[in-house]
């Protein structure tokens, strides 16, 4: 093959990428970059003052905003990693393949991870770890009534275990262990109800205090594109078991959504 033929073969580029390249990109304006840089410096300075250091982990998290808990939450939360709690129920709620796509409260989108922050939650002395993932929306396939996500929007999602510090994830998190910063994937996230909470050992965590959206378990709700191929639960999505690229998953998702 020569360059001429490879130019022809560029027609093999996935439809999703072609469609995305047709859309007008957000053009960068130099003054905006200046303003963003200045804002980031100010935010970092404020963050550094506002966050109380927690031992050796403080340096890593000084740029993160403090977590504000609502009055209903009685746990304490701080940035950092800890081993996942043994008392957490790791049983997966059984759903059929069709049900994965038909839940009314889900946003299904292609997105890229732009940030990860592990949080330690203290339930009256018993600790658990979660991760808040910031995702950059690239393409939306489905969203609940009242949501209006579009390309370029950010969405914060609560993951079921800690990830950011590179520690091994627990059993039952075999897909999201491939999540890292800049990872591209297709995600199915659920919008949290106002009253959604987790209660343990006499302490309550209002889940929306951490993020407005959640991934229910670490196995089934993400399709991740990695250098070693697609990572997702092929056994839970038999209709996509032969998928090799994220474009195949996109087609499959669109078929499932009808």
């Amino acid at each position: 093959m020569n360059g001429n033929e490879l130019l022809d073969k560029m027609e093999l580029i996935a439809p999703a990428y072609i469609e995305a390249a047709e859309e007008a990109p957000k053009r960068k304006r130099p003054w905006l970059r200046w303003a963003a840089a200045a804002a980031a410096c100010i935010a970092a300075a404020i963050g550094a003052i506002a966050i109380i250091p927690h031992g050796g982990e403080s340096e890593h998290h000084t740029q993160l905003a403090p977590i504000k808990l609502s009055e209903k939450s009685t746990v304490t939360v701080e940035y950092g990693f800890c081993e996942p709690a043994a008392w957490r129920d790791t049983e997966l709620t059984p759903y059929t393949e069709r049900e994965m796509f038909s839940k009314s409260n889900t946003v299904i989108f292609m997105g890229r991870v732009s940030g990860l922050a592990d949080v330690k939650i203290d339930f009256n002395g018993e600790k658990d770890c979660r991760c808040i993932a910031s995702l950059y929306v690239e393409k939306v396939y489905k969203q609940p009534y009242g949501c209006a996500f579009e390309q370029g929007d950010g969405i914060d999602v609560l993951l079921p275990c800690g990830i950011e510090m590179g520690m091994p994830v627990p059993e039952g998190a075999r897909t999201i262990e491939y999540i890292d910063k800049t990872r591209l994937g297709i995600f199915i996230v659920q919008k949290l109800e106002d009253g959604a909470c987790e209660e343990h050992n006499g302490a309550v965590l209002m889940l929306k205090d951490l993020a407005p959206y959640v991934i229910e378990d670490g196995v089934r709700w993400a399709f991740l594109s990695t250098d070693d191929g697609l990572k997702f639960s092929r056994s839970d999505y038999p209709g996509a078991k032969d998928a090799i690229a994220l474009g195949d998953i996109e087609k499959y998702v669109q078929e499932m959504l009808g």
Binding site: A14, Y17, R112, Y136, E138, L184, S225, D227, G229
Partner: peptide, 13 residues
């Protein structure tokens, strides 16, 4: 196609 799309998937938008 897999190689090209895998390569594109690893790039920023």
């Amino acid at each position: 196609a897999e190689a090209i799309n895998g390569f594109l998937g690893g790039l920023s938008a």
